[in-house]
Design a protein around this nucleic acid. Structure first.
Lengths: 133, 133
DNA sequence: CTCCACCTTGACACCGGTGTGAGGCTCGGG
DNA sequence: CCCGAGCCTCACACCGGTGTCAAGGTGGAG
């Protein structure tokens, strides 16, 4: 498919798709006229990239971890240098920390929302009884 | 405590502490000479802020959710406007998505690391037998 | 042939988080 | 008195992800 279709299917601007390519996150073949051609599986890939980006990982890191996340994974994994593995390990731990932090705060927000909208009919002392209808 | 100490204890540059204050994420009193004075609990607060920032939330959002995360929470929560609640709900859901995405990818990386370093002498067939040990 | 939609590259610009440096004040110790 | 450490404000600069626009090629439909 060409860039327009990929853009629509991933809800990602063409600009960004070219940027991701420039950053080595996705690849494309070119047809004779110079147009980019994308494989079907790029759709998932782009979505995944967006997710990681949104989760706070920089393209530099994503570029490193993506190759490990491909379908026929575990077979013929690319030349895994020790540095690479160290980086990955470190990054995995960072992700774990992020996850924990996010969960803690998400739960706190959630709890707050529950409390405030759960209508625990608190005494009129402080009000803020936002009618959740 | 003054900014230097807070900076050390949170491993956060003074510049950033002032920035967070400017963004309304933390507050400080000023002593007569103009120096900022921070309360003890700011240490945790700053750490939390850093976590959230690192997790991808912008200061704008953090400013909104922080008030809900304070110790004597649920009591006297600030004027919770309906928009506010909507924002929070939305943001909570976004956090959940982020968490899921992060977990998926963290696990994938983890699995890859296990496989590659666990040395499962995979048969040349298809492998991907990520031994969950 | 002309249009129009779609593609190309390249550049400039924004925004948010962060570093850095200048110029100036405060305060405690030699 | 002077010095140095710590604080202040202000401002410019960077980097990464993203928008946007310009100038141009391609190709199908009228």
């Amino acid at each position: 498919m060409r860039i327009g279709e990929l853009s629509e299917r991933t809800d990602t601007s063409r600009r960004l798709l070219r940027y991701y390519e420039e950053q080595g996150l996705i690849i494309s073949t070119r047809s004779a006229n110079g147009y980019r051609n994308y494989d079907e599986n790029l759709v998932d890939r782009v979505l995944q990239i967006r997710g990681l980006l949104d989760a706070g990982l920089p393209t530099r890191i994503i570029r490193q971890i993506l190759p490990c996340l491909n379908k026929p994974r575990a077979i013929h994994f690319p030349d895994a240098t020790p540095e690479m593995l160290a980086t990955l390990t470190l990054e995995r731990d960072r992700m774990t920390q992020r996850i924990e932090c996010l969960i803690r705060n998400r739960d706190a927000v959630s709890e707050y929302l529950d409390t405030v909208s759960g209508k625990r009919r608190e005494e009129p002392s402080s009000a803020a009884t936002a009618a959740t209808h």
